[in-house]
Amino acid sequence: MNKNGVKVMKWVDKRQLTMLSTLKEDKDELVNTGRKNRKTYEDIKKPTCVLTYNNKKKGVDFIDQMSAYYFTLKRGLKWFRKVGMEYLFGMALVNAWIIYNMKNEKKVSKKEFTEALIQSITGKNICPDRNQVTPTADHILEMSGKRRNCVGCYEKLRETMKSSEVKRKVKKIKTYCRMCKQNLCAKCFKDSH
């Protein structure tokens, strides 16, 4: 430790760790963590700076975990877009969700919170029914269990190719029109309705 209170510590547990600390509470003694070694049943002891770091790092790890479930980064050459998207849709969204759940008795999942936030910003109901994708009048595009050929894409490709070639190249989709009883991708559904 120098005269300004900066301490340099080296600790070896599973791997070597070197730390700089300015906290007055950090001393050069080992503190019991309250856990025991599985093999020797001895108390596990660590320096206070390591315990403080691990305790404070939990929040960062939690935010990284929650933002990783819905990954927003896209490929691109400009690094500042990636950083901005991560701050806005990763860290800021998770922080807002945590604060919302702390202030309200009824807890919501991150997905529900994100959907409600998108709906409030855009003013559009993004999921009136979980299985619906695009509603228009009586024709509704719904999700099915099996992947099948898109009827619209098949007909377009059939004009220029043989049916054996079309079967290999046609788009496989899980959506169908409830009224028409045809499997259609979103583009073909929009074009035909």
Rank of each mutant, 00 (worst) to 15 (best):
K3R: 07
G5N: 12
K7F: 06
V12I: 03
D13N: 01
K14M: 11
L20W: 15
E25Y: 09
E25F: 13
G34Q: 09
N37R: 03
R38S: 12
Y41D: 11
P47M: 04
P47R: 09
V50C: 08
N54Y: 02
N54K: 06
K56P: 03
K57N: 14
K57V: 08
K58G: 03
F62W: 13
I63R: 05
Y70H: 13
T72N: 03
K74L: 09
G76M: 01
L77D: 12
K78L: 03
F80V: 09
V83P: 04
V83I: 15
V83Q: 04
E86Y: 10
E86W: 12
W97A: 00
M102Q: 07
N104G: 01
K106S: 07
K111G: 02
E112N: 03
E112V: 04
L117V: 03
I121R: 00
G123I: 02
N125D: 09
I126R: 00
N131K: 12
D138M: 08
S144N: 15
R148T: 04
R148M: 12
C150E: 10
V151Y: 14
C153M: 12
Y154H: 13
E155W: 13
M161S: 07
K172I: 06
K174N: 12
K174L: 05
C177H: 01
C177K: 09
R178H: 15
K181L: 10
Q182C: 07
Q182A: 10
C185V: 02
K187R: 11
S192Q: 14
